[in-house]
Design a protein around this nucleic acid. Structure first.
Lengths: 107, 107
DNA sequence: CGATATATTCTGTCTATCGGTATATGCTCT
DNA sequence: AGAGCATATACCGATAGACAGAATATATCG
């Protein structure tokens, strides 16, 4: 799973949000480091819906603008949880090895 | 940065290794979940050399087979450290939100 | 003798993301 | 009034990194 997809799922993990809300949320989560392209976001949402990880929650019209809310499915939540664990394992390994490097190698 | 690239840098973080060693190390780091394709590995190594994150350490011939050892540069180590922090931030956010979900949403 | 492990190289294909554009409304600033 | 930005979704071509698999070659194991 790539970073933008991971962040979209993360944005939807706690509660339903519409596309543009996810966009701002991802920027907040990443401290402004990741700014999703519109194409990336909506393509990801469509793809994740097709895969059953995300589903449409509801649609609202606010100030003549459509807002389509998405939510994480149970499958999606399980997949995100697994991905978190996977990433934690990898980052831990990287940290340990970078530490070893500082100490002069594995030796 | 995508997962295979991250794992290649991680494999080289503590000490120099040759391509095939990286291959096995990545499998170990990921508990067998990630098995790099040969094409992915050597293409990544070439690319990372060109970018200055990795460099050739030395070459050996063991049992008539070439072993080209690579090591992480200071630039590469800094980049990997930054990537670790970035990923930790993201996984923390995901964990928190998944927890909130379990508690019934952001409310 | 076939299969597996070691070790690198190459080629074609795929796909998520990038970068940009289009559409449309409402708000703020000058 | 007009420029520009925020909101909100949609579409399109290009790219980069990864996937899948084959080629090459030696050594070892059963």
């Amino acid at each position: 799973m790539r970073e933008p997809t991971f962040l979209v799922l993360t944005a939807l993990a706690a509660q339903a949000q519409h596309g543009y809300g996810v966009l701002r949320d991802v920027a907040a989560i990443s401290d402004g480091q990741v700014t999703l392209r519109a194409g990336t976001l909506y393509a990801a949402l469509d793809r994740l819906c097709a895969e059953g990880w995300v589903e449409v929650d509801r649609e609202e019209v606010v100030e003549s603008r459509l807002r389509r809310y998405y939510r994480l499915t149970e499958t999606g939540a399980a997949r995100l949880t697994a991905e978190v664990r996977r990433r934690q394992r990898h980052t831990s390994a990287a940290e340990q090895r970078l530490q070893l490097r500082g100490e002069g190698g594995l030796a």
